[in-house]
Amino acid sequence: MDDIKILLVDDEEDFIRTLSERLDLRDLGSKTALNGEQALGYVGEKEPDVMVLDLKMPGIDGMEVLRRVRQIYPNIQVIIQTGHGNDLDEAEARRLGVFDYLKKPVDIEILVERIKTAHQAKKNLLDSSATAAAFAEAGEYDTAKTMLKQ
């Protein structure tokens, strides 16, 4: 299996450390960030594949991080994991294009499954992008467009 680069963002240190350890047990290496600034800094240095993001944080909050990440690094798959979200937040997050929106408490197995699926989705997206690009180069613009839409 490819190494998945995971970034965990949450202001609850106990939570994020344990989560990181448990992902390690499942052969998933991860980095942690305790707030929005740290998260954006890490993303700038080293683009992760999947980002697990809490919404309510001091300073730059999860929604703002999501907004910026989606603008600058649209390939990063973001999974929201929050205890505070209401359905307006969920609607907004989905509109911004999150991979999934999970409500705490989240079972570790479910999270692992979502992370893996997200990673797969990213790979597919890149593959299809590459294929679409190939079609586009060959002049088959319609096929390329259809592919990207999917």
Binding site: E12, T18, E21, H84, K104
Partner: peptide, 16 residues
Amino acid sequence: HEINNPLQIIGDQAGW
């Protein structure tokens, strides 16, 4: 809302 976070941590710690 406030209880969801500690619940998450309790669950995670126990799972770990």
